[in-house]
Structure formats: structure tokens, C-alpha cells
């Protein structure tokens, strides 16, 4: 890892270590983490220039705007099995409404599993079994009577690898509303424009809405996927390492976008990038080997974690 080549104080070198160790733990995250950690060129958030996690967190602590303490997602005693393997064990987590919650932890710790069990994408995995409760705004997600289609309409999801449909940009965004019954061309156009605007993509694509989405760059494709999720007007946005396959500039745009979207949406983001968690999230939950080790406000988690393992992970002693 070459993160602080120029000037290295002790605090900062330990940060560099964190990212490095995190990376070695997960080959998937290897590519994106490197550029992501040295994005000194970003002027709009000067605190990023200094990559000390504690500094990052405290510098932007004041911008933790929505302190609306309504619980949006209430996870009570959640266990997830893949066949005979216990992937998540007895997780209790409350995700407050309108805030950004980051799930961190080494690879295979179950954070993506948790994300998928919120909108029941685990249903698609053969052999996956869930016990315990997840409630979304009072609705029991795993109740027999819960309509999974209605549930997923309330919960948008963005995947690690951008996955636009091999159709036009317009059709990509319009798909969700269309299958939900929106028919009018005018109405669909409005939704598409609004969603693309919210995802900060409108200006770049407004002249080529009917071109193939696959012609967009990687970062644009990922923002298109976000726009597509927003078109359904969800309450919750689940993001599974949304920037891990992107270059630093695109990563920065996605992070800015997450920053802008909070308040309007409850966002749960899985990330391997500690810097990213520190930059964008209001709350952080640390997972290790299928257990939720600790969760709390991001500021506390990164400045004075109560668990030794959290501190070890954040400071890069393992990962």
C-alpha cells in the first residue's frame, strides 16, 4: 500500500495500514480501495485530504444532519443459514430513518448477507434460510402474508457491479415504474428525469436517453443503477459496495450522491473501505464472523470503539 508517501505522521500511517490490510483480506476490494484512499484532489470536502479516520469523522460530524430517531429497519435476533452454515447469528440492529448506516467488517463476515435479508434477496439463493425478525417500518419482512414484490418496491438496491439492463437509459429507469403499473409516456418521462436528476446523472445523459445504457462509463452505469432504484420511490436504499469497482473520481461522485440522498432515504451501505464509511455514514455497524460486534454513531465507532476487536479492525491490526 502506498498511501502516505509524502508526509507520514504516526496516526496517518496507521490509517494507511487499515486500508491495506482490509484490502489484502478481500481481493474484490483490492482495485478500488487503492485510489479511493488517496483522493487528495477533492476540493469540496477538504477534510478528506487528511485521511485519518478519526479526523475524517470528527471533521464532518457537524454535518450529521438528520437526527430523526425513528427506527426504519428493526432487526431482532436474525439468523441466516446457507445450507448448514450459519452466516449470521443473532443479529440485533436498529437502522434509524433517514440516516446512512455503514456495515463494515472483513470478507465473509455476513454484512452482505444482512443487506440481502432486508429485501429478501436471499430468497433467490438456494439453501438460504432465515429465522428471527426483520421489520421494515412495522411490517414483518418475513411474515408469510408479506408480499415480497411490495416489499422490494419500498427497498431499492444497488449492487457491487453495476448491472444495467441491455436496453436504453430511459428503459432502464422506467422499468420499475412501468411494471408497477405506470403507463403514460408523459408520466414515465417525468419519473425518469426526476430519478436521473436525483442520481446526478441527468445532465450527462439527457441528450441520449434512448441510447444503450451499456455505452455509459462504469461510474455512470452505477449512478444509472441508483437512478433506477430511486425511480421506484423507495424508502430504503441498500448499497452493496457500490463504489468498489469504480475509479476514484467516480467513487467520489457516488459518495457525494450518498451524502445528498441521506435524509430523503434511509441508506444502508456495505463497504470494505473504512475511509468511505467514515466519510458517508452516520452510524456504523461492525461485523465479524457472522456476529454483530458493535454498532453506534460513526463518530464514536471511529474515535472510541468500545470493543477491542472493532478497534483492532479499524486500526488495521487484522482484517
Amino acid at each position: 500500500m502506498v498511501i502516505e508517501t509524502s508526509d507520514s505522521t504516526t496516526g496517518r500511517s496507521s490509517v494507511g495500514h487499515t486500508a491495506g490490510d482490509d484490502q489484502s483480506g478481500d481481493p474484490v476490494a483490492r482495485v478500488p480501495v487503492t485510489p479511493d484512499t488517496d483522493d487528495g484532489g477533492r476540493s469540496e470536502r477538504p477534510e478528506v485530504a487528511s485521511p485519518s479516520l478519526a479526523a475524517v469523522v470528527t471533521a464532518r460530524a457537524d454535518s450529521t444532519a438528520p437526527t430523526d430517531d425513528d427506527v426504519k429497519i428493526d432487526i431482532e435476533g436474525l439468523n441466516v443459514y446457507y445450507g448448514a452454515t450459519l452466516a449470521l447469528s443473532d443479529v440485533h440492529l436498529q437502522v434509524p430513518s433517514g440516516q446512512v448506516t455503514a456495515l463494515i467488517g472483513p470478507s465473509g463476515c455476513g454484512k452482505s448477507t444482512l443487506l440481502r435479508s432486508i429485501n429478501r434477496m436471499n430468497d433467490l439463493i438456494e439453501g438460504a434460510r432465515v429465522t428471527g425478525g426483520v421489520r421494515l417500518g412495522g411490517v414483518d419482512v418475513y411474515d408469510r402474508r408479506t408480499d415480497v414484490v411490495l416489499l422490494r418496491k419500498r427497498i431499492g438496491m444497488v449492487f457491487q457491479k453495476s448491472n444495467p439492463f441491455p436496453k436504453s437509459i430511459f428503459e432502464n429507469v422506467a422499468f420499475g415504474p412501468r411494471i408497477a403499473g405506470v403507463r403514460g409516456r408523459e408520466q414515465l418521462s417525468q419519473i425518469v428525469e426526476r430519478s436521473l436528476t436525483r442520481a446526478a446523472l441527468w445532465d450527462e445523459v439527457k441528450d441520449r436517453l434512448h441510447h444503450s445504457a451499456l455505452q455509459l462509463s462504469g461510474g455512470q452505469q452505477q449512478r444509472l443503477c441508483i437512478a433506477r432504484a430511486l425511480a421506484n420511490d423507495p424508502e430504503v436504499l441498500l448499497m452493496d459496495e457500490p463504489a468498489s469497482a469504480l475509479d476514484p473520481a467516480s467513487t467520489a461522485r457516488i459518495e457525494d450522491l450518498i451524502f445528498e440522498l441521506r435524509g430523503q432515504y434511509t441508506i444502508v451501505i456495505v463497504t470494505h473501505n473504512m475511509q468511505q464509511a467514515a466519510r458517508v455514514s452516520d452510524r456504523t455497524a461492525f461485523f465479524y464472523q457472522g456476529l454483530l460486534v458493535e454498532s453506534g454513531p460513526t463518530v464514536e465507532m471511529f474515535t472510541c470503539p468500545s470493543q477491542q476487536r472493532t478497534e483492532d479492525y479499524i486500526t488495521g491490526r487484522f482484517g
Binding site: 434477496m121 431499492g156 433506477r228 421506484n232
Partner: peptide, 13 residues
């Protein structure tokens, strides 16, 4: 698979 995932996540049957 990612295409199917995208579709299901958008509340498609």
C-alpha cells in the same frame, strides 16, 4: 445472474 438480481430488486415478479 446480475440481470435477474437487478430485476427482482426492482420489485419485478
Amino acid at each position: 445472474k446480475t440481470i435477474r438480481q437487478a430485476s427482482y430488486a426492482l420489485a419485478a415478479t
